[in-house]
Amino acid sequence: MGHLPPVWTPEWLPWFQINLSTTLMTIVTSIIVLIIAIAATRSLTSGVPKGMQNFLEWVVDFVHGIIGSTMDLKKGAVFIHLGLTLILFIFIGNLLGLPMNFITIHEEPFTFLGQEIVTEQMIHESEVEHNGHQVVELAWWKSPTADASVTLAMSLTIVLLTHIFSVKYLGIKTYIKHYFEPSPLFFPLHLIEEFAKTLTLGFRLFGNIFAGEILIAVILLMGFAGIVPLMVWQGFSIFVGAIQAYVFTILSMVYISQKIQH
């Protein structure tokens, strides 16, 4: 415990804080998803599919099923790419944090791209000791989805997309009218609903995965006694990761279908 996130803040843009580990993991996850997807679709055949193509077609069918269960498939066919990107990114992201961590130990201030990430003050305030020195430990490897910045970014994207699709499919008039149905009194409720949707969608995923990683860290404190619980919990975390990817995708589709139907 006591690992800090490597936060990089550009001097000229103080609000643009970047959690380097999160962003690194976002990029790693995206690259892994891309490699899997592109490798699986290198030798496409419309005949009998083999190996990875088979697997990916199964994923496509699965997402098709998710969309089909929430809306009319004729309307929903265009959302298949969104659903596929969501489920693959979240599932792979959820799994990435499970097998390992990658920690750097800093006794001295550490600078990245001209910005101090570990400052004298941080080392001074740190409670972590290493070889008798006060040090700062930075955690670099984790699930990107174990960071609220990532999950909220995704949920906000989804909610914004639902509004865009709503205007596109129903027209601006119907879109606005929906806020006052079934009576104008419901307008505040609708506003709260949109807000709540964004928060719950993002925090559900974040909470599940973050809690899973915290528990792994706690189990690791147990030493050798923790090997069996660790295995059990990591197995369960794979299950949780899959479920959360599924839940996020199906809820996104439900929100979209709510917004594009009369």
Partner: peptide, 15 residues
């Protein structure tokens, strides 16, 4: 972290 937040949206879009 707003920076990570925005990068995530961009990364997701690119992906």
């Amino acid at each position: 972290y707003l920076g990570s937040f925005i990068i995530q949206i961009l990364a997701f879009g690119i992906l």
